[in-house]
Amino acid sequence: PDLGLTQLFADPNLIENLKKNPKTSEMMKDPQLVAKLIGYKQNPQAIGQDLFTDPRLMTIMATLMGVDL
């Protein structure tokens, strides 16, 4: 199971919303991170391994779920 990750990354406004959010806007200036996020739309399971190697993803996930870290 993808634990709902498919829906989190399926939002067509995902990148724009993250660019507008004060907690994630600075991160979204990294083209490699943006490319990763776009890739998760097609393969949400890929985030599982990346969560352990890129701490920014935890902040992004929390933001998408509405959790304040």
Rank of each mutant, 00 (worst) to 15 (best):
Q32T: 12
A35M: 11
L5N: 06
N43K: 05
G4E: 13
Q42L: 11
P55G: 07
E26K: 07
D54V: 01
Q42P: 02
F52R: 11
N43W: 06
G48Y: 15
L14N: 03
M61K: 03
S25Y: 08
L3H: 13
M61F: 13
G39H: 14
A46T: 13
F9S: 02
L37M: 05
P12V: 07
T63I: 15
L51S: 07
L64T: 02
E16F: 08
N13S: 08
P31F: 04
N13R: 09
I47G: 05
L8F: 10
L69Q: 14
F9M: 07
T6W: 11
K29C: 04
M65L: 15
Q49F: 13
A46Q: 12
I60R: 00
D2N: 13
K19P: 00
L33K: 00
M61G: 02
Q49K: 13
T59E: 06
D50T: 05
G4W: 15
T6P: 10
P22S: 07
F52K: 14
M61S: 03
L14T: 06
P55Q: 07
A35D: 11
A62H: 08
D2Q: 15
P31G: 06
G66L: 09
A46S: 13
L33G: 00
E26M: 09
D68E: 04
Q32R: 10
E16C: 08
N21Q: 04
I15A: 02
L18P: 00
I60Y: 01
L5A: 07
D68H: 05
A35W: 05
M65A: 09
G39T: 12
D30S: 03
Q42T: 15
P31S: 08
G48H: 15
S25K: 10
T6L: 15
E16P: 05
R56M: 06
A35R: 09
L14E: 01
T6D: 11
N17W: 14
P12C: 04
E16K: 07
D11W: 03
D30G: 00
L69V: 13
M61P: 00
L8G: 02
D11C: 06
P22G: 04
P22I: 06
E26G: 08
L69G: 14
G39D: 15
Q45W: 10
L3K: 12
Q42K: 13
P31V: 08
I60G: 00
P31C: 05
G66K: 10
L8K: 05
K29P: 00
G48V: 15
G48D: 10
L5F: 15
S25I: 06
A46R: 10
G4Q: 15
A62P: 01
G48T: 15
A46E: 11
P31Y: 06
Q32G: 14
K19N: 06
K20H: 10
L8A: 08
E26R: 06
G4D: 15
P31I: 07
K23H: 14
P22F: 04
D11E: 08
N13W: 08
N21S: 06
K29G: 06
M58T: 07
Q49Y: 12
V34D: 00
A46P: 05
K29W: 04
P44V: 08
Q42A: 12
L8W: 08
L3S: 13
M28W: 01
A35N: 09
Y40G: 02
L5R: 05
L33A: 01
Y40I: 07
P55C: 07
Q32A: 14
E16R: 06
P22C: 06
T59V: 13
R56K: 05
F9H: 02
G48L: 15
P55L: 07
V67I: 15
T53V: 09
M61E: 01
L64I: 10
Q32F: 13
M65T: 10
G4S: 15
I60T: 01
L64S: 02
L37T: 00
K19H: 07
M27D: 02
F52M: 13
I47M: 09
F52D: 07
F9Y: 04
D54P: 00
I47Y: 11
N21L: 04
A10I: 07
D11V: 04
K36D: 03
M58V: 13
I38L: 15
V67S: 13
M58C: 09
M65F: 10
V34C: 05
D54N: 02
V34T: 04
D11K: 03
A10S: 14
G4R: 15
I47D: 04
G48I: 15
A46I: 08
G39W: 15
K36R: 11
L37G: 00
L37N: 00
G66D: 11
M27K: 01
M65H: 06
K20A: 13
N13T: 07
N13C: 09
A10F: 08
M58D: 03
K23L: 13
L57H: 01
D68P: 01
L3I: 12
T53G: 07
P1D: 10
M28H: 00
L51E: 04
Y40H: 02
Q45V: 09
R56E: 04
L64E: 01
S25H: 11
T59M: 11
M58E: 06
